[in-house]
Computed example of a mutant assay.
Amino acid sequence: MLFFTFIRHRGLIAAMALALTPALWAGEGHSHDAPAAAAGPELPRFHAVSEDFELVGVLQGKQLTLYLDHAADNRPVKNATLELELGPLKLRPTPHGEDGEFEATLAEALKPGTIPVTVTVSAGAQSDLLAGELDLHADEHGDDAAALAWKPWAAGALIAAAGAAVLLSLRARRQGVAA
């Protein structure tokens, strides 16, 4: 009889240990199959697409990098020229290599908000107008995850307290039976 009580308590202790291991808990939007996320904040970006072209722009401080591809097969567009309107600014990005990458440097950092983007693309006989928006509000909610990080620990503490209460109650019952 004592052997079965020991085994039962040991199983309860093992279950509590597993419940208290935060590495095993999967939070909202978390998957153990997903690749690890890159460290640091995501850079602001915009996306504009037409029947012929697809353009992605990434802003890092005052540096704007643009990636231009053919929409049909995702091949980089070579020998293209771009005319960019970023809100009130008019820029002519310069090619950076031959792989559809362009760069432009802003005179000053952009102010937060949603900024309309219009790009005229000319590549050989093709010409197109692409439109999108650059949203510089992306980091407003960056602290939400940190504010909620205490909840799994609180749940673990409650589980541990309940488990300890069960163990103490079983121990008291056993000592009462043995006496």
Rank of each mutant, 00 (worst) to 15 (best):
G156F: 02
G11I: 00
V58Y: 01
L168A: 14
R10Y: 08
Q60G: 13
A26M: 11
E133Y: 01
R45Y: 10
M1C: 11
E140W: 12
L68Y: 10
G57D: 06
H30V: 10
Q175C: 08
P116D: 10
N79T: 07
H32W: 10
D73A: 04
A48H: 04
G132D: 11
E85W: 02
A178E: 12
A48K: 02
V56E: 15
S50Y: 05
A17F: 01
L66I: 07
R171Q: 13
A71R: 15
K62E: 14
K111G: 06
W150I: 12
V177L: 15
L64K: 03
L134F: 04
P76V: 02
H32F: 12
P22K: 02
L18C: 11
F102Q: 03
A149T: 08
M16A: 15
G124M: 05
A178K: 09
R171A: 13
V49T: 14
V177E: 14
A38E: 08
A172S: 07
L130C: 06
V166F: 01
I159Y: 05
K111V: 14
L91T: 05
P44M: 09
E28R: 06
L89H: 11
L82S: 04
K151I: 10
A147H: 11
A48D: 11
A172G: 08
L110V: 09
P44Y: 07
E108D: 13
S127T: 14
L55N: 09
L20M: 15
F53T: 07
K78A: 13
A36L: 10
V58Q: 10
A145V: 09
L158Y: 09
E42C: 02
A109M: 03
T118W: 00
P116M: 04
D99V: 02
S31Q: 05
A155G: 07
K78R: 15
A107G: 13
L18P: 06
L68Q: 11
G97N: 05
P95S: 05
V58T: 15
A38T: 07
E85S: 15
L170H: 06
L168K: 05
H96M: 10
P88N: 09
E83V: 08
D128W: 05
A125N: 11
A138D: 12
E83S: 15
F3W: 00
E98S: 11
N74P: 00
K90S: 14
L148R: 13
L106E: 07
G163H: 02
E140I: 12
V77G: 09
R174A: 15
R10C: 14
R174I: 02
S127L: 01
T105I: 06
S50E: 12
T94W: 08
L134R: 04
W25E: 02
A14D: 14
E85M: 08
E28V: 09
M16N: 13
D73W: 01
M16I: 11
L86P: 09
I159Q: 12
L24S: 03
H32C: 00
L82F: 04
A147Q: 13
R45Q: 14
T81Y: 01
W153T: 12
